[in-house]
Amino acid sequence: MRRLLVLLVSLALLWCLWWAAASYGLRQGVTSLLQDRRAAGWQAEARLVQSGFPLRLDGRLEEVALVDPTGGSGLTADHVALSAPAWWPGFVTLDLPETPMTVTLSGQPFRLRAQDARMNLRLHPGTALELESATVEGRQFLLSTAQGALLSGDRASLVAVQQATDPVYDLRLETDAVTPGDVIRAMLNLPADWPRAFDALALRGSVGFDRPVDRAALDGVPPQPRLIAVDSLDVRWGEIQVGGEGRVTIDADGIPTGTVTLRLARWQRLLDLASDTGMLGPAPRNQAQLLMGGLANIGGQDGDLEVTLAFADGQMALGPIQLGPAPRILLD
């Protein structure tokens, strides 16, 4: 009995030491991140409050501000909650606040508000911390600017899961009742009876990289894409229906090779809509009519249009039409 008691006390002490070390590592990681951003000229502020003993490592970052004044990008939030099981801190959950967050891109501020918004990161055990999977999801979200609402919806989910041990990730985007806001509807000059929400907005595919996505990706040049595959694309909004699939490989210089097939339903009706709303004048309408009519004769049926965007030898073409040099796909 004495030996058992000694063993239990020893295990408890070891666990306490492990939790303390892991909690210290969390604090140091947050501190190092903020210090690195400050050294790069950013405004980087957050106050960390830790809890969760004995089974979890919980942290709450309050008054978060990460702003790059040079690049015009940043994030501010009332708080962000971090949580991970104490036995493996590499399973991290980030809970975002239900109060509005401000995301700035290229100097343009956007306000994001969502219920149950969460990011789950799963890292392989080991010092490299290679990404196993990542999930971003939320309910009842609203993205807006000072001019008004841009996008809202009942649910959105983006999932990336690693294939076996390769640096290739399966991607899945799923949404419910995504609704473009008044700003977008006004920009497109849509008629009042146009449906408010998308009937469908979903994507399945995969992306592969030249090396593992791990902690080393935070320093220097990030892993570069070597494969982009679209297994299925389904976009339906009123009379707009777009589908597609494709597969493109990318060499070390960022030059893509492969094809992407796109299908557009009732393209003639869409041209009528663009003309009625003033997006296309008479001359551009006639040019678009000739171009899309010619493509429809090559691929398409029953008023639908199917075209292939091809990448080869550094050039790209839409069906038989040469479009010029293909863009290089490189991450800075």
Rank of each mutant, 00 (worst) to 15 (best):
R3E: 10
R3L: 14
R3H: 13
L7A: 15
L11Y: 05
L13R: 03
L13C: 12
L17T: 13
R27S: 14
Q28D: 12
G29V: 07
G29A: 05
V49Q: 13
Q50K: 05
F53C: 06
L55W: 11
L55M: 11
L57F: 00
L57G: 02
R60T: 14
L61G: 01
E62P: 03
E63V: 10
A65Y: 00
S73F: 06
G74S: 07
L75M: 05
F91M: 09
L94S: 04
L96R: 02
P97E: 08
P100T: 06
V103H: 02
T104F: 00
L105F: 08
Q108C: 06
P109R: 03
P109D: 08
R113Q: 15
L123V: 09
A128V: 12
L131G: 06
S133A: 15
T135E: 13
R139H: 12
F141G: 05
L143R: 00
G153R: 01
S157T: 14
L158P: 02
D166Y: 08
P167G: 07
Y169Q: 09
D176P: 03
A177K: 10
N189H: 11
L190C: 08
A192L: 11
P195A: 06
A197F: 03
F198A: 04
A200F: 05
L203A: 09
R204F: 05
V207C: 07
V207L: 11
D210F: 07
P212H: 07
D214M: 00
L218V: 11
V221Y: 01
R226P: 03
I228M: 12
I228Q: 01
V230P: 00
D231S: 12
E239S: 13
E239C: 00
V242H: 00
G243S: 11
I255S: 12
T257D: 13
T257E: 12
T257P: 00
G258R: 02
R266K: 12
L270N: 01
D272C: 06
D272T: 14
L273T: 01
T277D: 05
P282F: 06
A283W: 09
A288P: 00
L290D: 10
M292F: 14
M292D: 00
N297R: 15
G300P: 01
Q301V: 12
Q301D: 14
D304N: 15
D304F: 06
T308D: 15
G314K: 04
P325E: 11
P327M: 09
I329N: 04
L331E: 02
L331H: 02
